[in-house]
């Protein structure tokens, strides 16, 4: 793999890592399969592209985050107040967002940002100008990770984490789980939208279909991170998710290098996640199989001795 591709993949990985941390909050912390992600990612990109076109690339990131929070809140309300299953609530919001995203983009399926200022122009004129596309995502992801780490250890953060473990206990501790789910899903989707906003500015366009399969990419990053870098402490888990997102990009880049057609990308993503999800079962089967084999050998030996 040449260096340029390598650097590109790391840069993309660092930006997608924000989305992966969002998926980590909903899938792992809240233990909720939230499919809003596919829609909120595009929502972030759409808001970002429109505001960049109007010359507000920094404010665009903040607005994208807020818009994502709103999308996540709607999913949370559908689930907690209207008792719709989380999976279905997410799909409903994702579906609705498709129309909303088109409205945000002014009924255009694609907004190009050629020659528009983005946050990646912030370092123009400084000595590290050439490294802006690496320095800016790296700075943002480190800040976000530290903020998230602090937040998950606050009074509110603790009960959000406990909600994913045991809702009954959280209610018995005087906390409204409707609220913890709302805050959790809002922040998760806010981060997903922020990631979409940065991607739009990074690749200089926003597209209505850029979010398809995003939740699976996020989940793949989370699982790759967990498998390779461990789940021991909270900080380690967060770092693992970020590294997982980067690693996922590198794997995909490698597959492209080996001649995989870009159209096969989604299939490869689906297969990676399937294998990762099946890991525990495969491990168990393997153990049983080994046990049986050694037991059998023992019996054969015993009968031979007799």
């Amino acid at each position: 793999m040449n260096t340029l591709v390598l650097i590109d993949s790391v840069e993309l990985g660092l930006i997608y890592a924000i989305m992966a941390l969002g998926v980590f909050i909903s899938f792992r912390t809240l233990n909720m399969p939230d499919l809003t992600v596919d829609g909120s990612f595009v929502l972030g990109a759409a808001v970002s592209a429109v505001m960049c076109s109007n010359g507000n690339p920094q404010a665009a990131l903040g607005m994208a985050f807020i818009a994502g929070c709103a999308a996540g809140s709607v999913t949370a309300i559908l689930h907690t107040k209207l008792k719709i299953q989380p999976l279905l609530a997410g799909i409903l919001v994702m579906l609705g967002l498709w129309s909303i995203n088109l409205r945000v983009m002014g009924s255009k399926a694609n907004i190009p940002l050629i020659n528009k200022a983005t946050v990646f122009n912030l370092l123009d004129g400084t000595t590290i100008e050439a490294y802006a596309t690496m320095v800016i995502p790296a700075t943002i992801i480190i800040i976000i990770m530290l903020l998230l780490f602090y937040f998950l250890k606050t009074e509110l953060g603790l009960v959000i984490r406990a909600t994913g473990d045991n809702e009954q206990m959280v209610r018995a501790m005087g906390v409204n789980t409707d609220t913890t789910i709302l805050v959790g899903l809002a922040i998760a989707n806010g981060m997903v939208a922020l990631s979409g906003a940065l991607i739009a500015q990074y690749q200089s366009f926003a597209d209505i279909s850029m979010g398809t399969g995003m939740v699976i990419i996020g989940l793949a990053s989370v699982i790759i991170g967990e498998v390779i870098f461990g789940v021991k402490s909270l900080l380690r888990r967060l770092i693992a998710v970020i590294l997982g997102a980067v690693l996922y990009r590198l794997v995909i880049a490698m597959a492209f290098e080996l001649g995989m057609p870009p159209t096969d990308l989604k299939l490869v993503s689906a297969v990676i996640v399937t294998i990762a999800l099946a890991m525990p079962v495969i491990k168990e089967r393997l153990m049983t199989w080994r046990k049986r084999k050694t037991n059998h050998q023992g019996e054969v030996r015993k009968s031979a001795e007799n």
Binding site: A162, G164, D165, V170, G174, V175
Partner: peptide, 21 residues
């Protein structure tokens, strides 16, 4: 909460009467 430490569980319980911020 099984995936959290003993200390974190107690902290959640101790904040019972407070508004959590």
């Amino acid at each position: 909460a099984f995936d959290m430490t003993i200390e974190e569980n107690l902290a959640i319980a101790y904040a019972k009467a407070k508004t959590r911020g």
